[in-house]
Design a protein around this nucleic acid. Sequence first.
DNA 1: CGCGGTATTGAGACGTATCAAAGGAAGTGG
DNA 2: CCACTTCCTTTGATACGTCTCAATACCGCG
Lengths: 245, 245
Amino acid sequence: MSTKPKTVDCRDCPIHKLQTFRNFEKAELNFISDFKTGELSADAGATILVEGAHSAHLFTILSGWAFRYKMLEDGRRQILNFALPGDLVGLQGSLEGEMQHSVEALTSLRLCVFEKQRLREIFTNHPELAYDVTWIAAREERILDEHLLSIGRRSALERAAYLLAFLQNRASASGEPAKRYLPVNQQHVADTLGLSTVHTNKTLRKLADRKLIRWRERSCEVLDHKGLMKIADWEGLGRENRPFI
Amino acid sequence: MSTKPKTVDCRDCPIHKLQTFRNFEKAELNFISDFKTGELSADAGATILVEGAHSAHLFTILSGWAFRYKMLEDGRRQILNFALPGDLVGLQGSLEGEMQHSVEALTSLRLCVFEKQRLREIFTNHPELAYDVTWIAAREERILDEHLLSIGRRSALERAAYLLAFLQNRASASGEPAKRYLPVNQQHVADTLGLSTVHTNKTLRKLADRKLIRWRERSCEVLDHKGLMKIADWEGLGRENRPFI
DNA sequence: CGCGGTATTGAGACGTATCAAAGGAAGTGG
DNA sequence: CCACTTCCTTTGATACGTCTCAATACCGCG
């Protein structure tokens, strides 16, 4: 095996090379490279950020999946959204002050670490990148809007169909084609849909019976993406040139 | 009656004077004033923006309440969030491309109109304001996170308590103290909570029986704010120095 | 081989939706 | 000022969806 550098230089970032992302100037990459203070690796199940804590950092996902969630005092948990390679984590909620949600690794994870404190530098020195940050925030909002519609107004079957179509959509755009399966278990699905695990199981079974998905150990294979979208009355995420930091 | 100018000059903006908002530089106000292209008035029930359309504009609420919502094909509606004086409308969802949600006036409404196209100018010329835009987006995300937790994991009673506490919180920070009542009807509450109107009615009745609220025609009076927060296990929004554009 | 995490199933309780109808308040036109 | 309409709220009865509890089956792993 050849020796590899421990951390990826942003100028060689594998993610920037992907089709889904926009092209970046040399100067921008240099700045990002400087902005990046390190990398973090975490195993599946590890907690990256916890609600109520003050975090000095902001992360970008290099590889793997994570999810954001909130909990009520008695333990009820709601998963808010998932984060895939290229996603910014830690921007949601207040820019300053305590975290309003927790973040957990869904698979083993590699993250780029940035200092929140230096976020303002982006705004003063690199307006284009600053605009990107806002763009990313707006995109997250759009997704949260969809989730809200889903949980609020769709039936259990429609909700499940929406979620799996959504995750499949995100996975296939994230440039990890190796992963044919969505790395979630039924507990995760339940906590995202706002359902009990038992009912989630029965609902997923219906989707499986209709040959829309196949359930595996701790993961889900989507067999009929369009079929799921149709059940959920969902259009899909736009095919866009995402920015990325 | 004395004659009034049709539009408010940003330098005299009544909202900037409120305590909740941060202080602004002269240069910033001048820029905002230039950025503003007009005002728009709308009656309660009027549609400001519609899902699927391309809007060239961005709005700030001068007075009155509005709400954002999405609909499924068969007519089911989900209210995503409310907008009060000082809130930015139209930023949510994609910065470019079609609207992903609609916006409707809840009360009679006055809006400042900005051109989306010129948003980039903010980023190149006024980094502080650009940072504010991002701050505002992050705040909206935090609120959407709360709503997701609520709809996904709280019972009907807890959800209603959360929503009314939330609206009361927002109302009292928005500098319209004249309005002691929240200007929503039970249909709005139902569509926000993801419940039927009938069940919403029965749930609100329980809150009223416990002397937490009193229901009026097309509006709600909150009698015990803390009681609502306790039922919902909700901490409230931070008392922050909001930016504003 | 036994163990812990995950998925599956069934039965009964509970919460919420749906349908239908009636009562009240506000606004309109005669 | 009244009759009328319209929108909003309230109530009851019944159906349905989802939750809870409990037990079993399954699988990978030490």
